[in-house]
């Protein structure tokens, strides 16, 4: 029997997986639309999560009892602060990528690979040097069982206002802001022009340099934030990994065809598949199949590939993404 409770449980679990992917993919979208590819997201996420979790460890109530007794508001404020600080860390970290790939006109893959490599190494190196172990552990549970009186609304309350952390609302707001920014403001349209035809944009007086810097730093901020949100929703300990979510976010971006609401759909689809893969044993007709666990674990990746096969013919990647902008070339 599929009960309502099971549906709600699967749905909230889907949201939990979806949100970090969505936020990071939105950052990647802004970055790629300005013409800079950013495969450093994995590293930036790790760095943001590392700094954010460390902040939470310092800022939270230091005893288990007090940490458990925090109200929803306290928790949410701590969460938002952690996400913000993680975001700032990500922004500063992504500066390295921006400097190399925009100012120095270096190969974008190389500097990004360096960032991906350095982040986990720094996280583990610093944690082991200062704390003495690779785990950064904290005590606060960010998930809220019920969000005020919103939780009493039938269906919607169960879907969106129970067992969530505040990251979900942040993710949706960020998506809407990104949409409005890209398609409804002058700067946003200019940014997209930089990614399609930088020479034309330059000739119209758009400052490619500034716009690309802004885009890379924004994606760094969002990736750092996404990293913290990932770490905060997975458990109470961070150990220098975000389980490949940075790469998956790039996959979600390409799957979402560089469009905000398709990215939302792609993130949701992937989150749903991942939830099914993890909790198949509580879904009656799937557990009845009695297949090896590892085959279920493949579902999200195989399903994404199948969808990509079906939709990639009409791919709309920004034309100048990944290309170095040099005024001298034609």
């Amino acid at each position: 029997m599929i009960t309502n409770a099971l549906v709600y449980e699967l749905f909230t679990s889907t949201l939990e997986t979806m949100i970090p992917l969505l936020i990071v993919a939105v950052g990647a979208m802004i970055c790629e639309k300005s013409g800079v590819t950013n495969i450093a997201l994995e590293g930036i996420m790790i760095f943001g999560a590392f700094v954010g979790c460390w902040f939470v460890k310092i800022a939270e109530p230091q005893t288990l009892v007090l940490a458990a007794a925090q109200s929803n508001l306290d928790k949410s404020i701590l969460f938002i602060e952690g996400a913000f600080i993680g975001g700032i860390a990500g922004l500063l970290f992504s500066w390295l990528h921006a400097y190399a790939s925009i100012t120095m006109k270096a190969d974008q893959t190389i500097s990004a690979t360096a960032l991906n490599l350095v982040a986990p190494a720094i996280a583990i190196f610093v944690a082991r040097s200062v704390i003495g172990g690779r785990h950064i552990e904290y005590k606060t549970t960010f998930k809220m069982t019920e969000v005020g009186s919103f939780a009493d609304i039938p269906v919607i309350g169960d879907l969106f206002f129970k067992n969530v952390n505040v990251g979900f609302y942040m993710g949706i707001i960020i998506l809407l802001l990104a949409y409005v920014f890209l398609y409804k403001t002058k700067t946003g349209l200019r940014l997209m022009a930089c990614g399609e035809n930088p020479h034309a944009a330059d000739s119209l007086g758009v400052n490619i340099f500034k716009i690309r810097y802004g885009a890379v730093l924004t994606s760094g901020f969002l990736a750092g934030m996404g990293g913290f949100i990932f770490a905060a929703s997975v458990g109470k300990s961070f150990e220098g990994t975000v389980s490949g979510f940075g790469f998956l976010a790039i996959a979600v971006l390409i799957f979402g065809n560089w469009r905000p609401f398709r990215v939302l759909f792609a993130a949701f689809f992937f989150g749903l598949m991942k939830t099914i893969a993890i909790s198949y044993s509580s879904i009656p007709f799937l557990s009845a199949l009695d297949i090896n666990t590892n085959l279920y674990r493949m579902i999200p990746y195989v399903a994404t590939l199948i969808v990509l096969v079906a939709t990639s013919k009409s791919s709309r990647a920004p034309k100048a993404a990944g290309k170095i902008y040099d005024q001298g070339t034609r």
Binding site: G244, F247, I254, Y301, L305, L308, V309, S312, K313
Partner: peptide
Amino acid sequence: FNVHEVVASIMMNYI
């Protein structure tokens, strides 16, 4: 199928 090799690669790694 014009699937971007980076995405395909990432998925194939997990698979």
